[in-house]
């Protein structure tokens, strides 16, 4: 069976982890925002901005890690805008989020056209290269999949661990989770709900932008329009699928990437050749919706998600 051949090939599993990386970063970013009680629909646009900012920085001569930092800062600026409007001013998180996506996307395209007015095909940069971790990368199958990736991917996995530790093992994490569950209790403790929520949205947006930057700086080596292609929206679905828990969300991202990598390979088999390619491209989005239906019954939504907190009214 051709499918079995695919599933036991090391290159397949390496691709799964590669495809999962931007989703993992974006999903962690969204998860942090939502755990603090703020839905961030700016994610899709912030990923576009991050993808462009990191790539443009490296193209202008900075180092790769500086590029990642630039992407993160740009993401955090859009996060700041989102946070100011939704947290202290308590505006509709749906409308502001979509507005931020529109603004981030259009300003990215505007900046791209200004920076490179004449080009028809975008220039390439020297992107992150795979780094084989000694010994571990020699493990059959697993070594190829997990330990022969670019440093950007290792960073993504480290961030999942850090997010999990932060949320469940530190006072800060407790405060973030409480801001999303019962903000009045946080305020009663003398902590600033506004500060916690704004911080979460800003940091989370930085992670989203890194997810976008992975596309231009590690998965590919140049920037083109529509390259984020709904990954932000998928990340929002993954947060729900992961029941707002970092570990489960990571699992969801890998699972999703698995189906995505599989559909690309099945397209090339004799069996897949007869099926219109659009069917394959659709499956990841359809699976996202199916996953949402499956978990809907036992979803543990943060109780104060999307509910602005105004100390005046208690």
């Amino acid at each position: 069976m051709e499918i079995v051949d695919i599933l036991i090939s090391a290159s397949f599993w390496a691709a799964v982890i590669r495809i999962a990386t931007p989703l993992i970063l974006a999903t962690m970013g969204e998860l942090i925002c939502e755990r603090a009680g703020v839905l961030n629909l700016g994610i899709e646009g912030i990923m576009v901005a991050g993808a462009f900012a990191g790539w443009m920085a490296v193209y202008s001569g900075t180092g790769l890690w500086t590029g990642v930092a630039v992407a993160m800062v740009v993401g955090m600026l859009f996060g700041l805008l989102h946070a100011v409007l939704t947290v202290p001013f308590g505006l509709s998180q749906h409308v502001v989020g979509l507005g931020v996506t529109l603004l981030a996307t259009s300003s990215t395209y505007y900046a791209y056209r200004l920076a490179l007015p004449q080009v028809t095909s975008p220039p390439k940069i020297a992107a992150f290269q795979a780094y084989e971790i000694p010994i571990l990368s020699d493990i059959p199958l697993l070594g190829q999949a997990l330990f022969s990736q670019t440093p950007f991917t290792y960073l993504a996995f480290a961030l999942v661990a850090a997010t999990s530790v932060m949320l469940y093992r530190t006072p800060l994490g407790l405060a973030v989770r409480a801001a999303g569950e019962s903000p009045a209790a946080v305020a009663a403790q003398g902590l600033s709900v506004t500060g916690i929520r704004m911080g979460a949205v800003i940091v989370g947006s930085g992670f989203m932008a890194m997810g976008g930057a992975f596309l231009t700086m590690s998965a590919f080596d140049s920037f083109f329009f529509e390259m984020v292609n709904g990954r932000g929206w998928v990340a929002i679905a993954l947060v729900v699928f992961g029941s707002w828990k970092p570990g489960k969300a990571l699992l969801g991202a890998v699972l999703f990437a698995g189906f995505d990598a599989l559909q690309i390979r099945v397209q090339q088999t004799s069996f897949g050749a007869d099926i219109p390619y659009q069917i394959f491209l659709m499956t990841p989005y359809i699976l996202s919706i199916v996953a949402l239906i499956l978990v809907s019954r036992r979803a543990q939504v943060p109780a104060a998600l999307m509910i602005p907190f105004n100390k005046g009214e208690r």
């Binding site: 929206w233 919706i289 949402l292 019954r297």
Partner: peptide, 23 residues
């Protein structure tokens, strides 16, 4: 999906845009 299963319509309507355009 929203009224029966409580699935958030923001995500489903957004994802349907991509599905429908491919269709």
């Amino acid at each position: 999906l929203k009224t029966r299963f409580g699935v958030d319509e923001v995500v489903t309507t957004l994802l349907l845009n991509f599905i429908f355009l491919l269709f």
